[in-house]
Design a protein around this nucleic acid. Structure first.
Lengths: 186, 186
DNA sequence: CGCTGATGTTCGTCAAATAGAACAGCATGA
DNA sequence: TCATGCTGTTCTATTTGACGAACATCAGCG
């Protein structure tokens, strides 16, 4: 049982840079809003230094993100089942093989989409309703998708699932990419 | 949208004291395990000082608790419905009034207990299976119960629910206290 | 060209957090 | 009773994080 794997020195640096650029403000502006010296913030984003809790807290408030997001590595919420992996279920009556990707949750509404994307166009999606879940199965091409901070690359037959209530993106890496997208919300 | 309400100066102090006493080690021993000076820890538990992230992280590792537990105020996981509150449902056929306390989750197993307690004896319960939920309705007397860090006091007719997968306690505050306890685990 | 207003960086200085030891209090026991 | 070992506290010395200014760099513009 080791719930503290990574000393967060570098995590903080990466998280601060990411969250600041997500909000779209400059280092100087963020330092002003948080009420700290911009030199301090510069060093923190460079990975040097060991901020005090008050300093990091002020940055969390200014960025409007929960404190833990700045110190703990992003939770790997995306689950991938590669083509050919996963529990195989062979039908005895018909000539087909099924693979269980995700067990169906009762009383959840599911919307099914077919999405077609061309390379170079990134489709960003704002968070949906809380506790919604997205499922993707790639039909052809290559698809890069997932939560913004934890993206995965999928090929034909690959499956991925991740929460829909966090900002996430879809981006085709090859021409003629299409996928089946299931949005599940309770 | 203000996800950072409380500057965690005092929260850290309380959390450190609580978690250390939960593990059952001395201040000196914890400081030794975390590799910090015991004077530093003493000041932190006294609420003075503004620890660096490295220091607090080391304490989190030594206490074997996630970092966020030390800086964020305990999540108020206990929900209370006082006697007379809650949505009233009046039957048209019979002469009774029902109050919806919690909507039933399908496929959850429920065990119902009648617990009788006398003052002075504290009943502590270790965490049960994950995602289990406890429901309490007090019949008579006064009952103090809930997660260890977020207890509530209930009188006759009061209802409370809280997660069962965290350490929690029951303690009678008046003679002749009894309550109905429903343990719900998926 | 030089000015203005940004960007983020690197200085020196000061305050503050940390470390280490000395301390008071309270047990246990030879 | 004095010694030993622990508790947690409160000193002082030193390391270090935070501040503020000066800095290099770039962009837009008269």
């Amino acid at each position: 049982m080791a719930p503290e794997p990574t000393p967060p020195l570098a995590t903080i640096a990466a998280a601060l840079r990411y969250e600041r650029q997500r909000v779209g403000i400059s280092l100087t502006e963020l330092a002003r809003r948080a009420g700290i010296a911009k030199s301090t913030l510069s060093q923190l984003e460079s990975g040097v230094g060991n901020p005090s809790v008050e300093t990091l807290w002020a940055l969390g408030v200014a960025l409007d993100v929960p404190f833990s997001r700045l110190v703990e590595p992003p939770a790997t919420t995306v689950r991938v089942v590669r083509a050919g992996d996963g529990p195989r279920i062979r039908s005895e009556h018909a000539d087909f093989v099924g693979t269980l990707l995700t067990a169906g949750a009762a009383h959840a509404r599911r919307d099914v989409y077919l999405i077609e994307l061309e390379p170079g166009r990134v489709r960003t999606a704002d968070p949906h309703t809380p506790r919604s879940v997205e499922h993707v199965v790639v039909g052809a091409g290559r698809l890069r998708c997932g939560p913004e901070r934890d993206q995965v690359e999928l090929g034909p037959g690959d499956y991925a699932t991740f929460p829909g209530d966090a900002p996430h993106r879809y981006e085709a890496l090859a021409p003629g990419t299409f996928a089946v997208l299931v949005m599940e919300h309770p």
